[in-house]
Structures are given as C-alpha cells and as structure tokens.
Measured scan of single mutants.
Amino acid sequence: MVYKIRDKETGKVYEVTIDEETNEITVYDVKTGKPVKTVNMTIEELKEAGYEVEPV
C-alpha cells in the first residue's frame, strides 16, 4: 500500500510503500519516483519516530 509520510520536524514529505506482512517500507524520491532506501518498521513505529502517515 502507498502512503505519504511527513517529517514533523523538517516538513519533508516522502512517498513510501509498506508491505503489511513483512513491515518492509520502501522510501521513494517524490521528484524522480526512484527508491531511496528500504527500512523495516511498522506504521506505529513511523508515527513514534515523528512522522505523520497518510494513505494515498
């Protein structure tokens, strides 16, 4: 599923895909559409880390 996340401190917005089964999150560069990095976190962990998470 695709989400937009926003860093509450910097205001930067990222587009991510989240595999609900493995909790693998792939972060994409919004301008190029290319993957930047992959992390292993849940949506709740993202929120605790200071991100706003919205489904696209």
Score class of each variant (00 low, 15 high):
Glu15Phe: 15
Pro35His: 08
Gly50Cys: 06
Glu44Cys: 09
Glu21Ser: 13
Lys12Pro: 00
Thr32Ala: 03
Glu52Arg: 02
Glu54Asp: 08
Val13Asp: 04
Pro35Phe: 13
Val53Pro: 05
Glu21Lys: 13
Ile5Val: 10
Lys47Ile: 13
Asp7Trp: 03
Lys31Arg: 07
Asn23Thr: 06
Thr26Cys: 06
Lys47Arg: 13
Arg6Gln: 08
Glu45Gln: 13
Asp29Gly: 02
Lys34Cys: 15
Lys8Val: 08
Tyr28Phe: 09
Ala49Lys: 09
Tyr3Met: 08
Glu20Met: 12
Glu20Tyr: 13
Asn40Cys: 13
Met1Asp: 07
Glu24Asp: 07
Glu48Leu: 12
Glu52Asn: 04
Thr22Trp: 05
Val39Phe: 15
Val56Phe: 11
Val27Ile: 15
Val27His: 04
Ile5Glu: 00
Val13His: 06
Thr32Pro: 01
Asp29Phe: 02
Met41Lys: 04
Arg6Tyr: 12
Lys4His: 13
Lys47Trp: 09
Lys8Ile: 10
Lys47Asn: 06
Val30Leu: 10
Gly50Pro: 01
Asn23Gln: 10
Glu9Ile: 14
Tyr14His: 03
Pro35Ser: 05
Val53Asn: 02
Lys34Asn: 11
Val53Tyr: 04
Ile43Ser: 03
Tyr3Asp: 00
Asn40Gln: 12
Val39Leu: 15
Lys31Glu: 15
Tyr28Ala: 03
Ile25Lys: 01
Ile25Cys: 07
Gly50Gln: 03
Glu52Met: 06
Val2His: 15
Thr38Cys: 13
Thr26Tyr: 06
Asp19Tyr: 05
Glu44Trp: 08
Tyr51Pro: 00
Pro55Trp: 10
Thr42Asp: 04
Ile43Glu: 02
Glu44Asn: 11
Lys8Trp: 06
Glu21Met: 11
Thr10Phe: 02
Ala49Phe: 09
Val27Ser: 03
Gly33Met: 07
Glu24Gln: 13
Met41Cys: 14
Glu52Ala: 06
Tyr3Val: 06
Thr32Phe: 02
Ile43Asp: 01
Glu48Asp: 13
Glu45Val: 04
Glu48Gly: 09
Lys4Gly: 01
Thr32Asn: 06
Ile5Leu: 06
Glu44Lys: 10
Val27Ala: 05
Lys12Ile: 14
Asp19Lys: 08
Lys37Pro: 04
Pro35Asn: 04
Ile43Val: 07
Lys12Trp: 09
Glu21Asn: 12
Ile25Met: 13
Asn23His: 10
Thr38Ser: 08
Val2Ile: 13
Lys8Gln: 06
Glu52Pro: 02
Tyr14Lys: 00
Leu46Ile: 08
Glu44Ile: 07
Thr26Val: 10
Glu54Pro: 03
Thr17Asp: 03
Asp19Trp: 06
Val39Pro: 04
Val36Glu: 05
Arg6Ala: 05
Gly11Glu: 02
Thr10Gly: 02
Met41Ile: 09
Lys34Ile: 09
Glu54Trp: 15
Thr42Ile: 01
Thr42Pro: 02
Ala49Leu: 14
Pro55Cys: 12
Thr32Leu: 05
Lys37Ala: 15
Met1Thr: 12
Thr17Gly: 04
Lys47Tyr: 11
Glu24Tyr: 10
Asn40Ser: 10
Thr32Arg: 01
Ile5Tyr: 06
Val30Ser: 14
Glu45Leu: 06
Gly33Leu: 05
Glu48Ile: 10
Ala49His: 11
Ile25Gln: 01
Met41Pro: 01
Glu21Leu: 11
Thr26Leu: 06
Glu20His: 12
Lys31Asp: 15
Met1Pro: 15
Glu20Leu: 13
Val56Thr: 10
Thr17Asn: 06
Lys47Cys: 08
Thr26Trp: 07
Lys12Ala: 13
Val36Asp: 04
Met41Thr: 06
Val56Leu: 12
Thr17Arg: 13
Val2Ala: 11
Glu44Gly: 11
Asp29Ser: 06
Lys37Gln: 09
Met1His: 11
Asn23Val: 06
Lys12His: 11
Asn40Thr: 13
Asn23Cys: 08
Glu24Ala: 10
Val30Lys: 12
Lys34Pro: 01
Lys34Val: 09
Pro35Tyr: 13
Met41Asn: 03
Lys12Tyr: 09
Tyr28Asn: 04
Met1Trp: 10
Ile43Trp: 09
Tyr3Glu: 01
Glu21Trp: 07
Val56Asp: 07
Tyr14Gln: 01
Lys4Val: 14
Glu9Thr: 14
Gly11His: 04
Ile25Trp: 04
Glu9Arg: 14
Asn40Phe: 15
Thr22Asp: 03
Glu44Thr: 10
Asn40Val: 14
Asn40Lys: 14
Gly33Trp: 06
Thr10Pro: 00
Pro55Gly: 10
Asp7Lys: 03
Pro55Asp: 08
Val36Lys: 04
Gly33Thr: 02
Tyr28Val: 09
Asn40Ala: 11
Val2Thr: 11
Lys8Met: 09
Glu24Phe: 11
Gly50Ala: 05
Asp19Gly: 02
Val30Asn: 11
Met41Val: 08
Val16His: 00
Val27Asp: 00
Tyr28Leu: 10
Asp7Ala: 03
Val13Pro: 01
Ala49Asn: 09
Thr26Asn: 04
Ala49Glu: 08
Ile18Phe: 15
Thr17Leu: 09
Thr38His: 09
Thr32Val: 02
Glu52His: 07
Gly50His: 04
Asn40Glu: 07
Tyr3Lys: 01
Tyr51Phe: 12
Thr22Ser: 09
Ile43Phe: 07
Glu9Cys: 15
Tyr51Ala: 02
Thr22Lys: 15
Val53Glu: 03
Gly11Phe: 02
Pro35Cys: 08
Lys12Asn: 11
Val53Phe: 10
Val27Met: 15
Thr38Ile: 11
Thr42Gln: 03
Glu15Ile: 15
Glu20Thr: 14
Ile5Arg: 00
Glu45Pro: 00
Glu54Val: 11
Met1Ala: 12
Ile18Lys: 02
Ile18Tyr: 15
Met41Gln: 04
Lys34Leu: 13
Tyr28Ile: 10
Val30Met: 12
Lys34Ser: 08
Glu48Ser: 12
Glu54Cys: 14
Lys4Glu: 07
Asn23Asp: 07
Val56Arg: 02
Tyr3Thr: 04
Arg6Asn: 04
Val53Met: 08
Ile25Asn: 00
Gly33Cys: 11
Leu46Val: 07
